[in-house]
Simulated assay, not measured.
Amino acid sequence: MSDNKAVIPPYVNAAMKFILRSPLHGMVSETITVITFTGRKSGKTYSTPVSYSQKGNQVIIFTDGRWSKNLIGGAPVRLRIRGKDYSGWADLVADDKELMANMLVEHLNVVRRDAQYYNVTFDEAGNPRMDEISRAVDHVVMIRVTLK
């Protein structure tokens, strides 16, 4: 990705985790969740706040974070969504660029502020620009969580 990509400072992630686990979660929990997973090599439990979009029992997350490698081949995860804890199964999607592009468009239509993290802008009609979406999916992975 280009060097002008927005980066979230670690103190913001720490504050988000605190807020999402508190009674104040309603300020941000419509589109931000905490995903908790186990490190493949370390066996340690990790939690990180991420933007998400949801349709029924499917939660979609996009990231370029290295932590996503822990989900290769599928893995159990926990999500904190709108103040409630859920268990689910996370599948990492990195090779199906067409699916990723379609889902990123849907995600950005729900969570428009995320466009800055993928260097995507919107056209005059308010739609994400497809050429920028195509470039973005070359640098991210999609995590599809099926909630139990």
Rank of each mutant, 00 (worst) to 15 (best):
N4C: 06
V7C: 11
V7L: 12
I8G: 06
P10Y: 00
M16A: 09
I19H: 01
H25T: 05
V28D: 00
T31K: 06
I35M: 10
T38K: 12
T38Q: 07
R40D: 11
G43L: 09
Y46K: 15
V50I: 14
Y52R: 05
Y52N: 07
G56C: 03
Q58S: 13
Q58P: 14
I60H: 12
I60G: 11
T63S: 07
W67M: 15
W67L: 14
S68V: 04
A75V: 15
V77R: 01
R80M: 13
R82T: 03
R82N: 04
R82C: 03
K84I: 05
D85F: 03
D85T: 10
S87F: 02
S87D: 05
W89V: 15
L92H: 00
V93F: 05
D96T: 09
L99V: 12
L108I: 15
N109D: 10
R113Y: 04
D114L: 01
A115M: 02
Q116F: 03
V120I: 14
F122S: 13
A125P: 13
G126C: 07
G126Q: 06
P128A: 06
D131M: 02
D131W: 03
I133H: 01
I133G: 00
S134W: 01
R135A: 08
R135L: 10
A136L: 07
D138K: 15
V140I: 11
V141W: 02
I143R: 00
I143K: 02
R144M: 13
R144G: 09
T146W: 03
T146C: 11
T146E: 08
K148C: 06
K148N: 12
